[in-house]
Simulated scan of single mutants.
Amino acid sequence: MTSYRERLSPPLQVFVALLLVVPASVLVFLPINVPVGWGVGIALFVGFGLALWFGSPVLTVAEEGFRAGRAILYPGEIGAAAAFSGEEATAERGVRLDARAWTLFRGWVKPVIKIGLTDPNDPAPYWLVSTRHPERLSLAIDAIRPRTPGR
């Protein structure tokens, strides 16, 4: 059972800007064949749009662990999770970022979640992942962490 799922897809503005490939294709094919230009432009728009949508990583939290794209953290490897937004998120992605950290950023998603790791053999000290709902994701991750005495 999945307790959290989020696709880090681009915002509508990116797809609106992508529409510019249609008139650009028409202009390129203008001396050759205008209908072909329209067809190529529409095909490029649909193709790039689908690539952007399906190429966007998905974040999921389930009993098996936390998935960020193709990477997975199993419950026993998950430490404390902290949510950041605004200037704090910018600092976490910038001046406070440890070069050894595992990251999954998307420029159009500003908030981040920082997940500590409990595996002493892991070279990454933590994961830093973009998310639109850092508080909800943090709660979902905390719910699958193994309970230790005193928690």
Rank of each mutant, 00 (worst) to 15 (best):
R70L: 06
Y126L: 08
M1T: 13
R93K: 12
G47D: 09
T148V: 03
F66W: 05
F29L: 08
F48W: 06
P134W: 05
G94A: 13
P75H: 05
K110Y: 12
F66N: 02
V61L: 09
V22H: 00
A82L: 09
I144F: 10
I42H: 11
W53C: 08
V34I: 11
I32E: 12
N121M: 14
P75C: 15
F105M: 12
L97S: 14
L73G: 05
R151H: 13
W127T: 05
N121F: 14
A81E: 01
Y4K: 14
A24D: 08
G65T: 11
L27Q: 13
T131H: 01
A62K: 08
P75L: 01
T118M: 10
L44Q: 03
V34N: 03
T148N: 04
F48V: 04
R136K: 15
E6H: 06
V28D: 15
K114Y: 12
R5E: 13
G94S: 15
L18N: 11
L52A: 15
A99V: 13
W53V: 08
R136A: 02
P134R: 02
A43P: 03
P31I: 03
V40A: 02
V26T: 06
F105K: 04
D98I: 01
I78T: 01
T90Y: 10
L139Y: 00
S130P: 15
L27G: 10
A62R: 04
V16G: 00
F105Y: 14
P31L: 04
R136M: 00
I72Y: 06
L117V: 07
L8D: 00
A101P: 10
E88Q: 11
V95P: 03
N33V: 12
V129N: 03
A81Y: 12
F54T: 09
N33D: 01
P57F: 08
E64S: 15
L8N: 03
R136S: 01
V112L: 05
A83M: 02
F15K: 00
V14W: 00
N121G: 15
V112A: 05
W102Y: 13
N33H: 15
R100G: 13
I141Q: 05
E77Y: 01
G55D: 08
S138V: 11
S130Y: 08
S130E: 05
R147W: 11
F48Y: 11
L44N: 00
G69Q: 14
A101M: 13
L18E: 04
L137M: 12
F29G: 04
I72W: 05
A140D: 10
L97E: 12
A83N: 10
Y126D: 14
S85L: 02
L18Q: 06
L128S: 05
R93Y: 14
L44R: 04
E63W: 09
G76Y: 01
R7T: 04
S56C: 07
R145D: 05
T60G: 04
V34Q: 15
V22C: 11
R151L: 09
A62Y: 11
F84T: 03
G94C: 13
G94F: 14
V26A: 07
L8V: 00
T131W: 02
G150S: 11
E63M: 01
S138Q: 09
I72V: 11
A81S: 14
P120I: 06
H133D: 02
L19S: 15
R151F: 12
